[in-house]
């Protein structure tokens, strides 16, 4: 997911009886479906876990601009160019909304950015994979946004008010992203032989990385249990992954594409598809910074930040001069 492997700082889930009155009131409010707002009391662990999770989600949106941005100047028609540009722009907007949500927890956007750029904070593993053909624009929209939506839709009900509101806005804007991806895929599979090959190749390369987006199984994780009790995580990783596979396989069949998993099979008794796990060693390699594009992504973000410094400072200096001139005139 866009926020993977988030560890809560809690030491396991306390029962209501073990909590002091403040924390108990906080937990009861969450249990009753209430929202926690910035000025409300909250346990320190809740605050820190949320900063990590929202921050990582925001970083993923920002770094996530790069693999699709890679094709804006090569989009094959004016309309495709405009659609792709609008989509990548949305990702910048979503990063912005999420950073603002994190800022209500007492951390600044620049602080979070510095933590991204120094490698202290992570972004989703998926954005460390390259986009090699135009069909990848289809696959990213269809699979990557499709997987992201699985997680983001339930997060609209998350307990932290600013986060929930950001997710409402994001989900609304994002609804076109997956569809435009599928639309590209349809064009490709109905096109020339070369286009069909590109489409299959894109599915082959993005299938397992998409499954990795949900993170390793966390059914046994105390961190996940705590996050679920706080309602900042709404489903287990396995639930979401299964839901994604169940939804996506028929779509691949519709496109006439083959999911690259020989063990993929409908299981009548479970009422779900059985499927192969992704290579989790690869996942951990990517998280360690050894993804195919990890170095490129971090270089691009660092360059943007470093080369943008004079602009940020220049406009701030001008604003200060203007304020000083105005005060002097009064």
């Amino acid at each position: 997911m866009y926020a993977q492997m988030i560890k809560s700082t809690g030491k396991g889930v306390k029962s209501l009886d073990e909590m002091d009155p403040e924390e108990r009131a906080f937990q009861e409010r969450i249990n009753a479906g209430g929202k926690i707002e910035p000025k409300d009391w909250m346990p320190e662990g809740y605050r820190k876990t949320l900063i990590r999770q929202i921050g990582q989600h925001a970083h993923s949106e920002i770094v996530g601009q790069l693999p699709e941005g890679n094709w804006i100047t090569r989009a094959p028609t004016l309309e495709r160019k405009a659609i792709l540009l609008a989509k990548v722009q949305d990702e910048a907007g979503h990063g912005l909304y999420l950073y603002c949500a994190a800022e209500t927890l007492g951390v600044s956007r620049d602080q979070l950015t510095r933590d991204l750029l120094t490698g202290r904070m992570k972004y989703s593993s998926i954005f460390n994979y390259p986009t090699l053909t135009w069909a990848d624009m289809g696959a990213v929209g269809w699979l990557v946004d499709g997987a992201a939506i699985m997680n983001q839709v339930p997060l609209q009900r998350t307990s932290y008010g600013p986060y929930a509101r950001a997710m409402v806005r994001i989900c609304k804007e994002e609804s076109f992203h997956q569809r435009q991806g599928f639309d590209i895929m349809m064009k490709m599979v109905n096109g020339t032989e070369a286009q069909r090959r590109m489409a299959q190749d894109a599915l082959n390369r993005f299938w397992y990385p998409s499954l990795m987006m949900f993170g390793p199984s966390d059914a046994e994780s105390v961190h996940s249990a705590q996050s679920m009790a706080w309602k900042i995580k709404m489903n287990t990783n396995d639930e979401l992954r299964q839901k994604f596979v169940d939804q996506t396989v028929p779509q691949a069949e519709y496109l006439g594409l083959t999911v690259p998993d020989e063990h993929l099979k409908w299981n009548e008794t479970r009422g779900h598809y059985d499927f192969s796990e992704p290579d989790w060693d690869e996942f951990f390699d990517v998280l360690q910074g050894n993804g195919p594009c990890s170095t490129d992504r971090m270089e691009a973000r660092n360059m943007a930040w470093d080369e943008g410094r004079w602009v940020r400072e220049g406009l701030l200096a001008h604003a200060e001069k203007k304020r000083a001139r105005k005060m002097a005139a009064e």
């Binding site: 920002i62 601009q65 790069l66 941005g69 804006i72 100047t73 160019k81 540009l85 990548v88 722009q89 910048a92 990063g95 912005l96 950073y99 691009a300 360059m303 943007a304 080369e307 943008g308 410094r309 602009v311 940020r312």
Partner: peptide, 10 residues
């Protein structure tokens, strides 16, 4: 459009 994703500030 070449700036998309690498501008000085969001």
């Amino acid at each position: 459009s070449e700036w998309c994703g690498v501008a000085p500030v969001l």
